[in-house]
């Protein structure tokens, strides 16, 4: 329990993971997830998302630091943790030659308090595929089977490693809806994703992983708050970026230009936008492709990669 009375279902302290070849995939990360919260680990491929989740799932022992899931070490106290967690790996894990029903039956036989197979296949739209072999399922159907089996035992904590990768837009929305319903029923969900809109729309809190470290974390609003907004437009022929008023007067904190296309970053969106539009009005200039947007997770995400490059 923390000071606000939240029960921390997942606690990670200074976690490290080093692979056999000496590659340090996770370099000292800390975060906690409260009961009934959806927490997203966001990052590019190779950022350390899966390496982290596997430690939380108890598939490997950390090289350093500490993991607690429901108060237990998920690696050493497997028997205490597993009946209360559900896991969906990043890919596969089911024999290709078994049918959907046989796979569900097998998994049910290995799960404490497993719900009837029909009850879990129905919500993911696989009830009609009971007798189809796993190898004949589409990629999206396999992801949904995986999700159904992760939910079989009614877990308190759910680990979803890229749950919507390979799903079409509709399947993705359905999965989001399902995850929200689980959260409303007090299930704690930790998911990884490289879809920004997934993290932004679904997660109560998130952490952006970059090269094995947490580069930013908090609610989506907190993570984007510190980030600049963006304005971009194209100047008409005969005008150059130098014709704009001094950028510092516009409240601009960063800019790029590519010929006549100008991109400005600002922490004072209204002031900068107004100044640019007033200038254009007075100069009688039409700004083509004008795009004004407040800070988004995407900006935060790209910004982290950019800062990182600049630091090198």
């Amino acid at each position: 329990m923390d000071i606000d009375g939240h029960e921390h279902v997942i606690e990670v302290t200074d976690l490290r993971r080093v692979y056999g070849g000496g590659f340090e995939a996770v370099r000292g990360i800390s975060f906690s997830v409260a009961r009934g919260e959806i927490f997203a680990l966001l990052g590019t491929n190779g950022a350390g998302k899966t390496s982290t989740v596997e430690l939380l799932e108890g598939l490997a022992a950390p090289a350093g630091g500490r993991v607690r899931v429901l108060g237990h070490d998920p690696y050493r106290e497997r028997a205490a943790v597993r009946p209360r967690t559900g896991v969906m790996l990043q890919e596969g894990g089911f024999p290709a030659e078994l049918t959907v029903a046989e796979t569900a039956r097998m998994w049910a036989g290995c799960t404490t308090g497993a719900r009837p197979e029909a009850e879990v296949l129905e919500p993911v739209g696989l009830a009609g595929k009971r007798d189809v072999r796993v190898k004949q399922l589409s990629g999206g159907e396999r992801r949904r089977l995986d999700l159904a089996l992760a939910l079989l035992g009614g877990p308190e904590v759910l680990f979803l490693d890229e749950p919507t990768t390979g799903l079409d837009a509709e399947g993705r929305r359905d999965t989001w809806e399902l995850v929200r319903r689980l959260r409303d029923a007090d299930t704690t969900v930790l998911l990884t994703t490289h879809y920004l809109e997934e993290a932004e729309g679904l997660a109560d809190r998130l952490a952006i992983l970059h090269e094995g470290r947490i580069a930013a974390s908090g609610t989506p609003a907190e993570v984007t708050a510190g980030r600049p907004s963006r304005i971009s437009f194209e100047l008409p022929e005969g005008y150059f970026p130098g014709d704009l008023p001094p950028l510092a007067e516009l409240g601009v904190c960063g800019h790029e230009s590519d010929g006549r296309v100008v991109r400005l970053r600002t922490r004072e969106l209204q002031r900068t936008a107004t100044a640019v539009l007033v200038w254009a009005e007075r100069a009688g200039v039409e700004l083509r492709g004008l795009d004004v947007r407040s800070a988004s997770l995407e900006e935060a995400f790209l910004g982290i990669a950019r800062d990182e490059e600049a630091a090198v």
């Binding site: 028997a79 597993r82 894990g93 089911f94 290995c110 799960t111």
Partner: peptide
């Protein structure tokens, strides 16, 4: 399959 089974009980 073995990895998936190890995530269970």
């Amino acid at each position: 399959v073995l990895k998936r089974l190890r995530t269970g009980e």
